[in-house]
């Protein structure tokens, strides 16, 4: 690979987790910068220009959500947050504050790498993205506004189409309910999550072989949705 080693800043107060990340990420070609608290993390984020930040929400000196907001004031660096199970609301707040994705403790290394890849890809690509997208036997042509499944054209309503293309644009990345509602129905929409659930359900009926066991349109319980790639 000619690509330079991406630099990853880990802001995490637990030494064992930092050690695990250091060992596993180094062996997969990442360069690691470590911070044990938020204050040092902020300095490092500004000074060493990381390509991605892994941020623990439970820091001793500052709320992870607040730290996300501060970084977002001057940087678009992807932020992947790490938190314990049962803190879904914290994750949603952090994601809405500008974090790109999340990992629930405990997590495996494959899951971690997948998240990092997705987050890094979205920054390296321009926002226009590719006009044509293939997902298994699904073919999505955003120029011609045509969606086929095994060659058969599918008829989607305008909102279904917008929902699908939104997920495709952020493929592999989690989108919170609020983010989706804002994107499709506008920032002022007072619509509730269940609108989204109904459309997602319909979309699954049309796209998935078994809507109860979706392969592509995944639910992130309590947080939002993710297009599985």
């Amino acid at each position: 690979m000619t690509e330079p080693q991406p630099t990853i800043l880990v802001i995490e107060d637990e030494e064992p987790i930092r050690k695990f990340l250091r060992v596993s990420l180094a062996s997969h070609g990442y360069r690691l910068v470590e911070s044990a608290d938020a204050a040092d993390g902020l300095v490092q984020a500004a000074s060493c220009q990381p390509d991605l930040i892994i941020l623990d929400l439970g820091l001793p000196d500052m709320d992870g959500v607040e730290l996300t907001r501060r970084i977002r004031q001057w940087s678009k660096v992807p932020i992947v947050i790490v938190s314990a199970r049962g803190k879904e609301q914290d994750k949603v707040v952090a994601l809405d504050a500008g974090a790109d994705d999340y990992l629930t403790k405990p997590f495996g290394v494959s899951e971690l790498l997948a998240r990092l890849r997705v987050a890094l890809r979205h920054t390296s690509k321009s926002d226009t993205g590719e006009a044509v997208f293939d997902l298994g036997d699904l073919h999505i042509d955003m120029v011609r506004r045509l969606i086929t499944r095994a060659g058969q054209p599918l008829h989607l309503t305008p909102n279904e189409y917008r929902l699908l293309t939104l997920l495709v644009k952020h493929a592999g990345k989690v989108l919170t309910h609020r983010q989706i509602l804002h994107e499709i129905w506008g920032p002022g929409s007072a619509l509730e999550t269940h609108y989204l659930r109904v459309y997602m359900n319909q979309l699954r009926q049309k796209l998935e072989a078994d809507p109860a066991q979706p392969r592509y349109l995944l639910t992130e319980p309590g947080v939002g949705y993710r297009l599985n790639v």
């Binding site: 509730e192 999550t193 269940h194 659930r197 109904v198 997602m200 359900n201 699954r204 809507p211 109860a212 066991q213 979706p214 995944l218 639910t219 319980p221």
Partner: peptide, 14 residues
Amino acid sequence: EWHALPEIVGSAIH
């Protein structure tokens, strides 16, 4: 909240 049951079941299966 108002939920679609298939989504919950699907999430559990996943």
